[in-house]
Amino acid sequence: MLEARLEQSSVLKKVVDAIKDLVQDCNFDCNDSGIQLQAMDNSHVALVAMHLKTEGFALYRCDRNIALGINLVSLQKVLRAAQNEDVMTLKAEDSPDALSLVFENSENDRISEYDLKLMDIDQEHLGIPETEYGATVKMPSAEFQRICRDLSLLSESVAIEATKEGIKFSCTGDIGKGAVTLRQNPNVEKPELGTTIELQEPVALTFSLKYLVNFCKASGLSNTVTISLSNEVPLLIEYEMEHGYVRFYLAPKIGD
């Protein structure tokens, strides 16, 4: 059986908020390394991979591998009943038809108990090879979100170019064009506010802004985001948590 306790409900609430517009039904795979999820969007253009490691749980017990087939819209309805600071306990039998969620406030005088019906989801997993990326950019997640939102008002697509001068996001649309260039600017006192660029080789790729704006819903998970790019392979965007991560992969666009 599974028994997993999070000190703060906000962790799972933020993860579900971050991915629910990309995928609808997915398996939460529970095993002795924690809770993992991998799912593609319906169009097979984007993929989300999530891992909540056992170290991030106040209590974690999972005797055998359990797949929790969850509709994320339904899960979000139940999670609305949890306050951010509540302790959350997830429980499931070995072959469960429901997931039990218990929310307890810090004063220990309120216990909320919910059951979420599970579904059988036949989900295939993709093998994602270890990749040496041509460019890796670490920047404040709020700034990346702002750039994607601003450019999405002008165009459907953004060209991302990483060179030794910096990383340039540019787009062209019906009303005009726009570009934002970030130069390497490490912040010694507050590293989470700085921008660092590791460049092995120049990279130039084009991506759909609709998906990037969607990924930015994970900005609440981390102050920083890591963007990894190589020519002619999918983009990797990672939001690292204290004990886990949410990663998004996005296939590129080619030509005009």
């Binding site: 984007a46 993929l47 093998g127 666009k253 080619i254």
Partner: peptide
């Protein structure tokens, strides 16, 4: 604008 590739052109099903 442009041709959108899909992920299965890069990653294989396990």
């Amino acid at each position: 604008t442009g041709h959108q590739f899909i992920l299965t052109e890069y990653f294989c099903f396990l």
